[in-house]
Amino acid sequence: MTRFLIYVQLSNNPDAIAKMMLLVKQGQLSLEGATIASTDSGARLSAILTLIGTQQKAEWLTKKLLNYPFFHQAWLLRIQ
């Protein structure tokens, strides 16, 4: 198991946050922390998730997020 940071830019609405968390769940990743703040004069949110799981699942999540038009960008960073 590895620790990852995923940085996500999403639309500013609760459905987008819910969808993001549902995808964390579908990817069988555990959530260690989450910081969500609004950017772009409130038009978007930026989220930083600290996740634990396999590299394969973390990569899957990063790519999967971009299938949904709730999300503008997603980057993955391996931290351990």
């Binding site: 459905d15 819910a18 969808k19 549902l22 579908q26 299938n67 949904y68 038009p69 709730f70």
Partner: peptide, 13 residues
């Protein structure tokens, strides 16, 4: 309904 379909929907609003 948005919340109910969210896990399986490509986009809902």
């Amino acid at each position: 309904i948005v919340g109910l379909t969210l896990p399986h929907i490509k986009y809902a609003v």
